[in-house]
Structures are given as structure tokens and as C-alpha cells.
Design a protein around this nucleic acid. Structure first.
Lengths: 220, 220
DNA sequence: AATTATTTTTAGATTTGTCTAAAATATATT
DNA sequence: AATATATTTTAGACAAATCTAAAAATAATT
């Protein structure tokens, strides 16, 4: 497998994230995503095409081929494992880990990542609730949806929180809700959209609709 | 404090290591140390002088000033803390940690290093026995010398091993000698320069002069 | 369909870090 | 001290990654 520069890895990762929803990515959106200029993107696209990572025809958009996706997944895996380490072992807050993991994800040693993975206990989700690909690039795939519309009376596992402002984190801390928390929805109140929930072995409590809208859960 | 590139940090670190013994470093030896060409060294020297990190007069050698030393020490600190983490927590062998730490030492976050230091229990020596500077750049300073010429009948602590070939490591494993081991020299044999030693709560044993020459110890 | 607006690419410049080959300086030797 | 040798620096080139400004292609609008 060819060797990729930090810059190339960053492009590959961004293309991977963008092509999830849409089927083909365009130059401008990648330039925005990467905080760079469209001309720079075009330069890099040519390089990545030459390295047989990218499906790309001039003026017609582009997307990663299977090879490219594989590389993207190794970078994503490294990023999320480091995020887990930073939050879980070093005690960083969720909102601080991303920037540091952006640097750590480019450390090249395969052996390091394998040992780190084992050291951390082969976690499946990072502190933001995003799934961590395994060493083969397989992504753990549970149903995930917004708590506001999740099923009642089923065991739900908090998987991610979209609004990560200090105010929101403060609120969640008060309710003792964190990534990995187990909870059930007991009932909805139609008056204001709030809901009564019960966290595993805690008393029931009521959370507002705006809170529930930003909390995502897994279940099977 | 200015920001330094990976390449600049590597030059600073190498100059730091070279200026320990000699008082002024010369272009060729730095080029050898860094596996590069003398012309490239000169280019970088100009840059580092401009950044007020370096005492440097054309053709007359160079050395880091106080600012430069401070920067070198932060890089050395990061390198050795990561080495400790790799060996102690992830289970890497001594001889594998250096190459990976060469990459990790350039991760920029100060907060990361402070938290890592605490997580590791603020260790004083890395897996090679080299001292880890603290956050102020202070280096723990014990007497260190070659086991072959260390004092008899004093408690010595194995601090580093210079020859780290597989053969040597194998031999040390057999004798159960590792970094941090406590031992005493019981007597020397003049016939072949070998010595009888006793490791804490182990039976005494005899090690050859070539082995002793590559083992370094601390004592007070 | 023709024109306008948007998006994308090209051409050429810039910065960082490196190199080779030649020139300048310092050191060693006779 | 003069010459030879070794070391260091300069000059100019190159690759990677970026940029600006202009040209080319595509999409939208009248």
C-alpha cells in the first residue's frame, strides 16, 4: 500500500465524510470543508487520481474508490481511537479531543494502533458516539436515531450528542446523561414535547424537547 | 513563543544532543546526525538564527541559546513521555519505542503532554533510562556511570543500556537485568574483567566485561 | 437558444525544505 | 609561509502544497 502524506490523508478523510450523503462530491464543497481554495483542491484531485484512490473526471465531480475508502477508514479509525483515549484515559472533555486527534490520526505505525485498540479494550464508539471501524475497516452498525423520536419502553444507549455547547453539557451532567448511558423512555407529554425517562437504576426524570432533539441513541 | 515546524524541531533536538559534550557544534556532524546534506544544515541554521534560537557565526560553529534549549527540552520531554507510554502501557519492547516517539514528539498540544505526564504518574526516566525533563525543563539529575567502573558494594539502579541489539537484550533478559533493577557489585575478577553482582533478592551471578561496559547505572 | 452566472480548471507564482555543484573559508602539512 | 585538504557556504534547481488571477466548462435564466 502506497504511503500518503498528512495533506493527502486529510483530503481523503474529508472526501470520505462528504460522499456519505451525496453520491458525488464537488470541488467547492470540498474546498469549504477543508478550509482551502478550489484551485488547491483540483491540484490534489489530480494527484489522488494518479494514485488510483479516486474516481474523477474533469468538471464531473469525484468520489473515493474502494482503495480510497479503505485508506479513509484507517484514518477515521485512528482518529476515533485517539479521541477515545484522550477522553476516557486522559480525562479530556468531549469538545477538546477533536483538535488533538486531528494531529494524532497521522501517526503512521500500524502496530501502535493495534496495541492502542487493545489497551483501550477495543471500544466501538468514540466520545462523540461515532462508530470506530475495526482493523478490517468494518463499522459497527447499530440503529441510531434521535431520542425525540426513539421508541418508548425499549432500552436505549446514548450514542452521541450533536449540540456540544457548554450549556448543553452542563445540562446533561445534571441529568447524569453521558455517552454509553442506558435509558428508557417512559412517556411523552404532548403539551410541550417533553418526555419522562429513566436512567438505569436512577429515579425517573423529565427532559425537554430541545434536549431530546440533540441526544442520539442506539438500540437493536 | 514562536511556532516551530517538525523539521525545525528535529534540528533543534539534534543540536541539543550534540552540544551536550562539545561546546560548539559543526555543520558536518549535524548533517551526519540528521541524515542530510551540509548545505541543508546551513540553510536551516540561518532560519534558526533569525528566529533567535541559535548562536551562530558563519564558519565558526553554533550552539543553542537559552531559548533554543528550552524548546529542545520540551521536545525531549514529549519524546520520552511517549516512549514511557509505549513501553509501559502499550507493552512495546524498548527497541521499538524510539521510532514511534519520533513522530509523537511533534504533536503540539501542551495540555495533552501535561495530562499524559499525570496519567503516567510523572515518571522520571524513560524505558532507555534517560531522564524525562519536567514541565519547567528541569532534568532529574542522578549520578550515572558505566557499570564496568561503578563503585563496589553500593546500591546501583540500572538506568540505561547502550547496546540494544537483540543479542544483548536476550542476555540481559537471562540475567533478569532491566531498567530500574537494583543491584550491587560484589567483586571484580582481574583475569577477564568480569564481575560478580547480586540483584536485589536474587542469587549472585557473574557478568562479563563487554556486558558491563554497555550497562549504565544510577546511584547517589 | 442566447446570455449570464456559477463552478472548475489552468497557468504561473510562492513558501518550505531539500539537493548538487561550485565557490569561499578554515585547517593541516610540508 | 605556501600549498593542499577539509569544511562550510552560496547559487541555483526541484518537489510538495498552497495561492491568485484568468480561462474554460457547466448550469441557470431570461
Amino acid at each position: 500500500m502506497t504511503n500518503f502524506s498528512v495533506s493527502e490523508e486529510n483530503y481523503i478523510k474529508s472526501i470520505y465524510h462528504l460522499q456519505q450523503d451525496t453520491h458525488t462530491v464537488n470541488t467547492n464543497s470540498l474546498a469549504v470543508e477543508m478550509n482551502t481554495k478550489p484551485a488547491s483542491v483540483t491540484d490534489m484531485l489530480k494527484k489522488l487520481k494518479q494514485k488510483k484512490i479516486l474516481q474523477y473526471e474533469k468538471y464531473k465531480g469525484f468520489r473515493l474508490n474502494e482503495n480510497g475508502k479503505k485508506i479513509a477508514l484507517t484514518v477515521v479509525r485512528k482518529h476515533r481511537l485517539w479521541e477515545f483515549f484522550l477522553a476516557n484515559n486522559l480525562g479530556f472533555e468531549w469538545d477538546k479531543v477533536h483538535a488533538i486527534a486531528e494531529e494524532l490520526e497521522h501517526i503512521s505505525s500500524q502496530e501502535l494502533i493495534q496495541k492502542l485498540d487493545n489497551y483501550l479494550g477495543n471500544p466501538s464508539f468514540d466520545p462523540h458516539g461515532d462508530p470506530i471501524p475495526d482493523k478490517h475497516g468494518n463499522i459497527p452498525h447499530l440503529k441510531q436515531r434521535c431520542l425525540a423520536i426513539a421508541p418508548i419502553n425499549k432500552t436505549l444507549i446514548v450514542s452521541s450528542v450533536t449540540n456540544q455547547t457548554a450549556e448543553m453539557l452542563d445540562m446533561l451532567k445534571h441529568y447524569k446523561i453521558k455517552i454509553g448511558s442506558s435509558l428508557k423512555i417512559i412517556r411523552h407529554f404532548t403539551f410541550d414535547g417533553s418526555m419522562e425517562i429513566r436512567l438505569l437504576k436512577n429515579a425517573a426524570c423529565v427532559i425537554s424537547d430541545p434536549v431530546a432533539k440533540n441526544v442520539f441513541v442506539h438500540y437493536d
